[in-house]
Computed example of a mutant assay.
Amino acid sequence: MTDVHDIEWGTVRRGEGGPRLTRGNAEQLLELAAAWHSGRPTSEVTDAAYGIRERRERQLVDHLATLADGVRDSGRLYGTFGDGLCGFVADPAVLRSSLREANRASAGHLASGVGAAAIDAAGLDAARSRATFALHVTKTLKGTEHPPDGLYLFGTVLGVPAAEAALGFLERLREAGHDVPGGHHLDHARRHREHWLRHLPATYRDRAVPLLLGGDRAPA
């Protein structure tokens, strides 16, 4: 299961003054809105806005096509969830390679993460749910170098640097309180706290428990 991270607003590398990794089309549209507010003719603004939209859609189509074409010998990615794909790939290495190529080809514009899960005796619905969780893990790590190829496989315990980055992201959402942009990631993590505790290194579980149990802000 794939998803383009922050397609509207882009992604900034984590850390103080981190460089922008991808630029979202909303930034460009806001610039146009400011120009319109300052007196630029409406027709010029709308023509420019539709041009941005058209280029963005083409970038997305090309990005998703690269992902899908890259796995043809090992499976199939199909359909779209707005800006992502789902499907079956027999060899995770092929999926990783396809993801790296798609992200390389669209560097600066789009970057996808992938959540994957094995299909076992629990069946397809369980695999789909696990892949969705794994995809959310990649979202907590966007703007970092973890996972290095953008793909997270359900059942893999996070390394210490990745666990630190993921928990830090969720803790900042908690500290920001209700209605913060991205707050749904914390809501999702709390609904799936058992998965999170299973996938964190043992040394991080005590820290994660109060975060995942609820409460809107960090204790004073």
Rank of each mutant, 00 (worst) to 15 (best):
L197Y: 02
R190P: 15
R205H: 09
L158M: 09
R205M: 03
R205T: 07
H192A: 04
V180Q: 10
L211W: 02
V160N: 08
R198M: 03
T203Q: 10
L170R: 00
H188Y: 15
G183L: 08
A176Q: 15
D179V: 05
R172Y: 12
A166Q: 02
R174W: 10
A165Y: 10
A162D: 12
L212N: 08
V160D: 07
G183V: 12
A163Y: 07
R174F: 10
R191Y: 00
L186W: 05
L173H: 09
E164T: 14
F169D: 04
A208N: 03
E175R: 15
A176I: 13
R174M: 14
H192V: 08
F169P: 00
D216A: 07
D216T: 10
R190F: 12
G214Q: 04
R190L: 13
P161N: 13
D179T: 08
E175H: 15
D179Y: 09
L200R: 13
D187E: 14
R172P: 13
G159S: 12
R191N: 06
A202I: 06
L158H: 06
H192Y: 08
G168S: 10
A166P: 01
R198I: 00
H185G: 10
A166G: 02
R174P: 14
V160R: 14
V160Y: 03
L173E: 04
G177K: 05
A163V: 09
T203H: 03
V157Y: 06
A208H: 01
R207D: 06
Y204L: 15
H199G: 07
H192W: 08
H188E: 12
A208V: 04
L170C: 04
R193V: 07
G159M: 06
H188D: 12
G215S: 11
V160I: 11
G214M: 03
R172S: 15
L186K: 00
V157D: 05
Y204I: 10
G168W: 13
H192T: 11
E164I: 14
R191D: 00
R198G: 01
A163G: 06
H195K: 00
G182Q: 03
P210W: 00
A166C: 02
A189H: 02
F169N: 05
Y204V: 12
L173Q: 11
R190N: 13
A189P: 01
E164N: 09
R174G: 11
Y204C: 15
G183C: 11
L186A: 05
L212G: 10
D216E: 08
G159D: 14
L186N: 05
E171Q: 13
V180T: 13
H184W: 09
A176N: 13
G182V: 05
E175A: 15
V157H: 07
G177W: 06
L158E: 00
W196D: 08
E194N: 11
G183S: 12
A189W: 03
R207M: 01
F169W: 06
H184I: 01
Y204N: 11
P181S: 09
E194R: 10
A208D: 02
L170H: 02
H178L: 06
R198T: 01
L197F: 02
H178Q: 04
H188R: 13
L200F: 09
G215T: 14
H184R: 01
L167V: 06
A208E: 01
G168P: 15
A189G: 02
L197M: 03
L167W: 04
D206W: 00
A208F: 01
V209C: 03
V157C: 10
R190Q: 14
E171D: 05
F169H: 12
G214T: 06
R193A: 14
H195Y: 07
H184A: 04
E194Y: 05
P161S: 12
